[in-house]
Design a binder for these strands. Structure first.
Lengths: 126, 126
DNA sequence: CTTACTGTATTAGCACACTAATACACTTGA
DNA sequence: TCAAGTGTATTAGTGTGCTAATACAGTAAG
């Protein structure tokens, strides 16, 4: 699950780790109550510093995906399906707001962006 | 036109400057062949370093918005309407690709993003 | 209780992007 | 020709985010 973590990527390590786990939780590969590897275990496995793993776990905890219990471990947090959907929509809204702001900065109409997104979705399925 | 440039903004100065000019060109406020302020003039007016203005102009030149002529000045470049539209669509595609990649990292479906963009566009017109 | 594991907190090193400083080369017009 | 304006190039300073190092504090099981 963590095989594709790459220290030379421009994407921060903690971000890559968090992304992996987010996807695993979203896909149901990690179930409620299940323990994640300890920060030291995962750090050793990836040959990186424990603090970096902590940063990833902390981000996930802030998003409500996991719960960190001092002295015990980090566990997948159960959330109802509709609440999870709600969170996804909020995130999507934030992303949309960001990309539209960026487009405005570049002098590009929101409609052009919307069209481009639709087009990307279309070509992706081929 | 450059009144809203803010050194304390998280957005880089050169980026803010370039954005202003891009919008002015796109809106037709700056016409073909028209000279922009010299790098020193604009730098003095904004109380920043000339090299920062250069960075903004260079970005615009790379995008084909302006042309820099050593010893002479920086001039708005004329581009045909359809070529400009083409450039806008390319930019939009790049933005779409980026936001969808980000969404994937977060475990969010592209459809959710598309819906969020549509919704933003709707609420913006009220 | 003690041991061996958990997460927590603080500090430091490092890289990279942004901005500034300074010297250079070209153009224009008197 | 030359003076005063233009953009060009290289180098240096600065701030911020990422990663690492190290010491601290809680939990759980023998």
């Amino acid at each position: 699950m963590f095989d594709e973590i790459d220290a030379r990527s421009p994407i921060p390590l903690y971000d890559q780790i968090a992304a992996r786990i987010r996807l695993a939780v979203a896909a149901g590969d990690l179930e409620e109550g299940q323990a994640l590897p300890s920060v030291r275990q995962l750090a050793a496995r990836l040959r990186i510093n424990p603090a970096t793993v902590v940063q990833a776990y902390r981000a996930l905890a802030a998003e409500g995906f996991v719960e960190m219990r001092q002295g015990s471990g980090t566990y997948v947090r159960g959330v109802s399906a509709d609440r999870r959907q709600r969170a996804r929509e909020d995130q999507a809204q934030r992303l949309a707001r960001g990309v539209l702001a960026e487009a405005a900065r570049l002098g590009i109409a929101g409609e052009d962006v919307a069209r481009a997104v639709q087009r990307q979705l279309g070509t992706e399925r081929r």
